[in-house]
Nucleic acid binder design. Sequence first.
DNA 1: CCCAATCGGTTCACTATTCGAACCAGTGTT
DNA 2: AACACTGGTTCGAATAGTGAACCGATTGGG
Lengths: 248, 248
Amino acid sequence: MSTVGKAVSLLELFTLHEPEIGLSDLARRAGLDKATARRLLMALAAHRLIEQEPRSRRYRLGAGLSRLARIRDAHFPFVRLAAPVIRELSLETGETVHLSEFSAGALLTLHVELSAKANRVNVDVGQVLPLHGTASGIAFLAASRLEAVGAYLEKPLQAFTAFTMTQPDDLVKAIALAASRGYSRSAQGYEEGVHSIGAAILGADGQPIGTLAVASPVSRVDDATAAGQGEAAVRAARLISARLTGEA
Amino acid sequence: MSTVGKAVSLLELFTLHEPEIGLSDLARRAGLDKATARRLLMALAAHRLIEQEPRSRRYRLGAGLSRLARIRDAHFPFVRLAAPVIRELSLETGETVHLSEFSAGALLTLHVELSAKANRVNVDVGQVLPLHGTASGIAFLAASRLEAVGAYLEKPLQAFTAFTMTQPDDLVKAIALAASRGYSRSAQGYEEGVHSIGAAILGADGQPIGTLAVASPVSRVDDATAAGQGEAAVRAARLISARLTGEA
DNA sequence: CCCAATCGGTTCACTATTCGAACCAGTGTT
DNA sequence: AACACTGGTTCGAATAGTGAACCGATTGGG
């Protein structure tokens, strides 16, 4: 791997649940020598991509990242462009709709429009969704390159409910169905009582960058409703994709 | 410079005003060979820190940055911690108060609480403030290490109004005064008719990471008012510093 | 209380990675 | 048609990266 790749992989070790890591730990997990890790960290720190807590001497992500992200968000406003479409879809379906962006092997919830109904599905911004077991994830996999899907299926699939698909074969079928229909359907794979319809949002290079999903209580959805939500979700996802690439 | 440093300096070429740049241009500005620049860009792209517009083949900042910035912001919530203090200071002084973070040789405005008065100073989030000529900048320099101040004074100082301090000697005096008082005072150095009181916010390592400033119309401020604002600004800045380092 | 096992950090000979001049092919401009 | 740009590629030379061994400082059992 390139030196730059190693440096970035150090950055990627930090997560929401573990935002500060010590040198030895960092080196071990990245598969690097301590000396190498330290040199890379110092280089990153010189550009404020990493900073070091002076007391514990542990490392954390730096302010430079916030700066760069602001520049990006100002120019590539995924959430800003998608939000009105998400809102419209929520009003049209009467259900909760959420927007996710793919990042590091999972989907990160960026924006949510809640249903106006009393009995509704609640989703939190910031929630991390697995690719299997959520409609969003299956829609994302259905739009991904085959090799990416294969790589994901290599790892064991965690069960979140009694309904979670943990057999690669089942997942492959679900992905194939989603690919042919343009949207995915999943019931209670991640949370009990929740039914979801997902559709992938594509970037300028045709690769999926995120998804949107319509989430309803299972009791409210029959096949006809699901089909209607599916078509609406696909339209919304295509509209966002088009706006992102400047085609609309 | 290290390879990593070169890669990061490529990222830093992107700005709010120029969020997409071509390969040759990028290489030229970073002082790198085209081949080198491209290799670095590909390494960054592999980790989603950069992406390439397939049509124009120009490069832009990638989604990975947004992800990393979210992780950082969740753990190190500068704006989130500071906002209520800023609000309180605005109510106490009756004036507009803004929060800035240091980044790449300048101060970036992150948050603003506007005065309730009809005649007030307006500041925009995202606005970039120079270190000389603003109260925020002088407060920041006064809290910085001497070598950082020296390095900044090496470069010519741009004049923004007829009142902007462009002589290093004058600036040194202003910095010394700010350092002894704990807050800085500046009138019309950046924009005509605006009077500002600035105070630095320190990170866990004692180095300044940003500033806050009370901005009023010049007509409304006499020495006594300024002194009062100064003390209030210092208190607020210290409170934010303490909360950031987990001391309160 | 001391020993052992960590920790973060540093050194330096070795070598693999990075560098960059020269080279494509493509696209406007003159 | 010649020119001046683009983005992208190649490959021998040279530079920058590597990591085992080594600090001194903490930490936590026994």
